[in-house]
Every structure is written in C-alpha cells, then in structure tokens.
Simulated assay, not measured.
Amino acid sequence: MTLLWTRRAIADVQAIKQFIAKDSPHAAQLVTQRLVAVVDRLILFPQSGRIVPELADPQIREVVQGSYRIVYRLIEKQVHVLTVHHAARLFPIGQ
C-alpha cells in the first residue's frame, strides 16, 4: 500500500500546526506527530476508517484523531490523504 498526501492535506496540517503553535509550540508538534502517525497506520490498515457519512462513498473514508477528521480516498493500492479537517467545522462537501 502506498501513501500519498494531497497538497490540500499538507496545507491543512501546516495550518493546524501554525495555529496551535501561537499558544504552544510543543503542543503543535505533538498534535502534528499524532496526525501523521494515524495516517501512517493506514498503510497497514487502509479500510480501518469509516465511510464519510456526508459523502456515502465507500472509497472515501476517515479516521479521527483528537478533534480532527482525516479524510482519505482508497484507489487500488494507494491511500490518498485528501484533507485534515477540524471536527467542529462544517464538512466541505464538493470541494
């Protein structure tokens, strides 16, 4: 299984890290490490996430880490990380 991060997902994680770092650089580092660790586990367990309820597409799944929804798409032998989205925010359907 191959893992690919989209530009959007990378930008999401960078924005999360920058936002948290305003209050605590250490906490920002920990949150980022945890997000990446959850994504790395998808290589071994790609179907471990649930189907995103808003989309109802079996290829688009999510795992939750803390307050964040990590949305990914399964394409053959690849995991494409699409976005890392704060769970309290409205999910961006169709973007």
Rank of each mutant, 00 (worst) to 15 (best):
I43T: 15
T6Q: 06
R7F: 12
R89G: 03
P46A: 07
V71K: 02
A56L: 08
T6F: 04
V31E: 08
Q65W: 08
W5M: 08
S67G: 13
Q33L: 10
A21W: 01
A28C: 03
F19R: 15
D12C: 09
L82M: 13
I16G: 04
V36T: 09
V71N: 09
H85K: 00
L90K: 15
R7I: 05
A56V: 11
Q95I: 08
F91Q: 03
A27P: 00
A15E: 15
L4Q: 12
K77R: 15
I93N: 07
L74P: 01
A88V: 05
Q18E: 14
T83G: 08
G66P: 03
A21L: 03
E76L: 13
L35R: 01
H26W: 09
V64D: 00
L35F: 01
P92D: 02
Y68N: 10
R7N: 14
Q33D: 09
V64R: 08
Q47F: 08
K17Y: 02
L30V: 07
I10Y: 12
V13L: 15
L35Q: 08
A15D: 13
E62H: 10
R7M: 07
L35A: 04
T83S: 13
S67R: 10
V36C: 05
A37M: 08
G66M: 05
L55V: 08
I70R: 02
R61A: 08
V64Q: 02
V39Y: 01
I75P: 00
T32E: 14
D12Q: 09
V39C: 04
Q95G: 14
Q59Y: 13
G94H: 07
K22Q: 13
